[in-house]
Design a protein around this nucleic acid. Structure first.
Lengths: 341, 341
DNA sequence: CTGAAAGCGCTAACAG
DNA sequence: CTGTTAGCGCTTTCAG
């Protein structure tokens, strides 16, 4: 029992044994040029006093800590929880820890988190930008400082860094086409805030699909709102009261799709008979809804793993900063009961 | 553009200005005994070269980093996601960062995570133990080293440390009583693994309620299984085939309650007419189920905040290690459609 | 008001 | 095989 005591150091081991610090160091890291006997003695004392190497001191020498900073909007979103697991796995395998931070979609938080992670000298950053963020000077600074950075999921065109995203355009295109093929003609799109680039990509995909099938693009059926069930529910209420009632809704996320479902049901309409609905993310909850929600499945875990790989590549000694790679992963529309057949 | 360059140091500022290192240090931290002029010059250059203090060096001096280690089973559980937000808020307000780690309920992971956090010299640890864990030597070591530790939610009686938990006994007692009052007589309990202490507390509460109301305790109606929808669904299948079919199920978690619901429905039984169901955690999904799931609400965010406060108290200079406090928070049974009236 | 020097815990040359 | 030394970036005495 030595509470409040300073943690044991190599210095202490050295003193106890009457050897030099470097001998202890060598013994502890299994250096070849050390006698078996000294080694065992050192190891014994180390165990005795519960010596743990001070990562701080090591990190100061390496000029960086053995950890990757992960910045996401919210860990509770299924996509980010999966991605974090993927990152964690890949990072641990490479001997790195991860420091998870959530921005809660706030720009200010994002800026200060990134700043702090840099100050903590993380080895690199894996980021999915907050929905509020329009200005990316904080990330450009990361680049300027030569700190490895990878973006995932929420892309940001102006930043020239390695990134992993899904093919948002195609995903939305296919989902929209599916709705059209099942007979829907007035398809609404519940988009995210207008500054969210992946939302805009999906919007483009949606419009393309309409155009391809010679359907009019009705701007009353395109609504931008914050990511939340409640906002989406309100937006849907508005949609249902609009001149041209929709017969399908494509939502930016499952959370938003669920908001839509609630409003649709409340209005006494049937899903999918009156209105078909498709969301994004393939959250586990989709299976529990009635009707079961159709959704675009995104490979979150894989996205995390690849993002980490891209980061680790940059950490390699001989990394060449060519054109930063952009991995685009395919999605899969999972058709369930919320779609007419 | 100076990628791969070392980050700027105070040394550099000193050289550029032809002053000493200590002057720069003083200027940067607004020391009283420094001329306004020098200060401004230093500040100007600091901004110019985008100097960021090296937390690593500071931490080495302080012998610890400015962060609290948070160890939870899985961040995706609603309860832990909320608790983390509470911890994050309280920690940030006190100037601390948090390092979130998930054990995935694995004992081995927990041990190695705790070890690494110690090696990284976190200021303290906030932990919710993995379901697998029966041996707590790794946490006792934390105590022995005098590193502040707080447990939350998943209690562990043998560890004498500050903790925040809910009143598991009463919560289960009340839930069971509610079922009894609504006319149920064969109430099953879907428990967690037998080594999980809070599950056993709930079990005790459940039994007490039965006894109070002179109902027989039927051990066929008590099933231990791993926390997962699937396991719970299988366990429920077994229950439904048992000699005495239950007319109510109290589940350790909402995830498990959901598994139970699926099996019950699949068996062609009606909820709540044939079987009433109550879960724990009050997950947002409960509201989306049909019927809406009744659940014991736990104040996750608050639990996180209090846990952090208990940790910060230990960090105070003059902390007296008396009897470690144990905060027991009240829960609230949220009655919804899955209960008969 | 400013500078020099020691030291936080450890590693890595460089000498023996 | 082992010891000595310098240094990672910074704060903090102690001297000017």
């Amino acid at each position: 029992m030595n509470p409040k005591n300073n943690p044991p150091t190599m210095q202490e081991i050295a003193k106890r044994l009457g050897v030099s610090l470097s001998t202890v160091s060598r013994a502890l890291k299994n250096h070849p040029r050390i006698s078996e006997k000294t080694k065992q003695e050192v190891l014994k004392i180390a165990k005795e006093i519960e010596y743990e190497p001070n990562q701080l001191a090591l990190s100061l020498l390496n000029k960086r800590i053995n950890a990757i900073g992960v910045v996401v909007p919210q860990i509770k979103y299924h996509l980010y929880a999966s991605a974090i697991s993927g990152i964690e796995k890949a990072a641990n395998e490479a001997g790195f820890n991860i420091m998870i931070c959530q921005t809660n979609e706030l720009f200010e938080r994002e800026v200060s988190i990134v700043k702090e992670l840099i100050a903590s000298r993380v080895a690199g950053l894996i980021v999915s930008v907050a929905s509020e963020s329009r200005d990316f000077a904080h990330l450009e600074q990361v680049l300027r400082k030569g700190i490895p950075l990878v973006l995932f999921n929420r892309d940001c065109e102006q930043l020239k860094v390695p990134k992993v995203v899904i093919d948002n355009y195609t995903a939305a295109f296919q989902a929209t086409e599916k709705l059209i093929e099942s007979g829907c003609e007035n398809i609404a799109f519940l988009a995210g805030p207008p500054q969210v680039q992946i939302s805009n990509k999906r919007l483009t995909g949606y419009k393309s699909a309409l155009r391809k099938h010679h359907l009019q693009i009705d701007y009353d059926l395109i609504i931008h709102c914050e990511f939340s069930q409640e906002n989406a529910a309100n937006a849907t209420l508005k949609l249902l009261r609009s001149r041209q009632q929709p017969d399908a809704i494509l939502a930016f996320s499952d959370q938003m799709a669920i908001g839509a479902m609630l409003s649709v049901k409340e209005a006494g309409l049937k899903i999918p008979e009156d209105i078909s609905i498709i969301g994004f993310n393939n959250e586990p909850v989709d299976l529990l809804l009635e009707p079961k929600l159709s959704s675009v499945d995104q490979p979150g875990f894989e996205m995390g793993q690849i993002a980490t790989q891209l980061l680790l590549n940059q950490l390699e000694e001989n990394y060449e900063e060519l054109n930063p790679p952009k991995k685009v992963l395919a999605t899969k529309l999972v058709v369930r009961e919320s779609l007419r057949f």
